[in-house]
Design a protein around this nucleic acid. Sequence first.
DNA 1: TCCATATATGAACATATGTTCATATATGGA
DNA 2: TCCATATATGAACATATGTTCATATATGGA
Lengths: 130, 130
Amino acid sequence: MKHVKTRPAGRKTPPSGTCCQTVHEDQVLRVREDLPPEEILYDLADFFKALGDMTRVKILESLRRGELCVCDLAAILGASASAVSHQLKILRLSNFVKVRKAGKSAYYRLSDSHVSDILERGLDHVQEDL
Amino acid sequence: MKHVKTRPAGRKTPPSGTCCQTVHEDQVLRVREDLPPEEILYDLADFFKALGDMTRVKILESLRRGELCVCDLAAILGASASAVSHQLKILRLSNFVKVRKAGKSAYYRLSDSHVSDILERGLDHVQEDL
DNA sequence: TCCATATATGAACATATGTTCATATATGGA
DNA sequence: TCCATATATGAACATATGTTCATATATGGA
């Protein structure tokens, strides 16, 4: 995951005839005006995308319980230190986590309580439907 | 996006020597016990993944402002009705939106206020860092 | 200075994902 | 019954993404 302003997949050809005819013009215009600016929406999608991976979710949920070094995380996830390190880099660049280096180890922690809140909220949502 | 319990990308070979030696056993065990069950974490990642795409974010943000048909959405996004329909299917299967069919049109709306809340929360987070 | 260990990172590659295009399906009207 | 329009959906394909492997870098100890 490059995680630096990605472009969508799909083909390269530009969107052809966009759509149909029965468009409710008033509503379309209203929503178009009311929608947050393109860039904000881009950041929003990127924000959620960073949370949308099993490994990263596990890392974040682990860090909610306290500071941990790469080794610990690898052990907890049952993953290679390399895989964890790659994902930590993404989380670092997205400002989800911070590092503290001590000796040969690197201790990671959540950046702020905001992240923890969103995870909590997501967990509630996911669990309530069951 | 298949969005039905996906498996990670990566190679097929099983994870080799997982990690290092300086593991803080106590913490690792504690976190391991405290972590939500695997399946819940899977759902959580999937939940965020569904929100992690520009087109879907635009659709959801549009629907926060009221019910809209596929045509309207295509017009608002400047995308093809087909692309929108494909993404709406994903959102439907993930229970983010509901449909109401009337005549030849299909009117979509957010499933519940929960979704709207999460989007709001995400927006706050994304905007505050600027 | 030489080693071992903890992390970080680039390349390769198997998969996952999103859009376009071609069709199928459904509905209302003539 | 025949058509046009709105959606839905499968296949193809260009990209994006995550893991493994091979190395590079940093640090502490002998």
